[in-house]
Design a protein around this nucleic acid. Sequence first.
DNA 1: AGTTGGTTAAACCATTTAGTTAAACCAATT
DNA 2: AATTGGTTTAACTAAATGGTTTAACCAACT
Lengths: 203, 203
Amino acid sequence: MVKTLQTEDRILITAREVFIAEGYDGARMQHIADKAGINKSLLHYYYRTKENLFTAVFERVFNEIMSRIFSLVESEESLENLIRIFFREHIGFLLEQPRLPAFFISESSLHPGLLSSVFKKFGTRGIKKFSDLVDMEKKAGKIDDNLDPRQLLINILSLSIFPIAIRPIFKDVFSLSDAETEDLLRRRMELLPVMVLASLYNK
Amino acid sequence: MVKTLQTEDRILITAREVFIAEGYDGARMQHIADKAGINKSLLHYYYRTKENLFTAVFERVFNEIMSRIFSLVESEESLENLIRIFFREHIGFLLEQPRLPAFFISESSLHPGLLSSVFKKFGTRGIKKFSDLVDMEKKAGKIDDNLDPRQLLINILSLSIFPIAIRPIFKDVFSLSDAETEDLLRRRMELLPVMVLASLYNK
DNA sequence: AGTTGGTTAAACCATTTAGTTAAACCAATT
DNA sequence: AATTGGTTTAACTAAATGGTTTAACCAACT
């Protein structure tokens, strides 16, 4: 029992690393087994197929990210604080997991059917809470009545996630060193709140 | 000679479709050959390896996109007009090529080494021109002196490209139909210029 | 009529890959 | 001492895959 959980978990952790690093199509079961320090038989013993293992991994990662994003919403902060905190923490987090954004985007676009149940399963709870918060601020006259909370959410995520996903391109196109690229991205922690908050109050 | 060009081009066009649809790892040479109406031998006769074919495709796509983005800059429009026009045209374009963003992000992140020469080859010309334009507006006192043109560029691209790359997730998370998702994205053509322009003039 | 270059057909190769099987092993449990 | 469940070893299958080879085909060119 103890061993079982250890192994099952270690497989999941290792599989996550490999899938994130190489994508579903690029990942090899043998590679996962080796890296987890077990053999292929055992891998298939726990997760019968590659698809199984992948969806298990993806679901876990997806839920982690989503609760990361929406746990803030539950904390009853004001919208303004929420946005400030989010950019700081989220960009910091992504800079430490640089392949995560591209992995997410790639797999969700490549196998939408496979993953759509995972997406749907994630509750509207967080989203509802976020919409409510936006509504409150509207009624308090602090922000534009026409603002669509979904658009706001998309904007926030776009501005924080995309640049990190596309980092290698920026590095080469702007002729930057790794440190300079990192610096450029890190500076966004302060730039983005200003920009997004301005888009709420003005107009 | 005539035939050669026809075929070589048809291969490239077909390979582009397949690579964009399935990614480098997911794409199959046989599939490309079949879809191009030729046999595998001929495919390898023109582009010896899969890697060759892929880089040829990617380079072409990359340059098309980049000149799409920067041709506007050459047109001597004001920054404000440029931003308005860009969002309208670019979002419209991407909505017709919905896999393009995810393809780009995925491959650039997965094989940065393979593609870095492609990225570097793309001139700093367009970027320089864009920076100059921003500088002019700074001197005219129209925008914040501290604005980094690279950050502005990243913001513009993030806000337009990312939402389309992540479309399947939004669709499911927001419980939308295809039409509603499309509508949500299309509305951004008007929302984004307002937001981005506000971020230039204020503060 | 003969040459040339693009093209096909089909077999072929070596390797990789996901997944299976069966027997043995070992530690903890009963 | 016997059982059980996780685990290994190692061989194996079946299919797929990138790439090669060889001979023949055909239209245009000389």
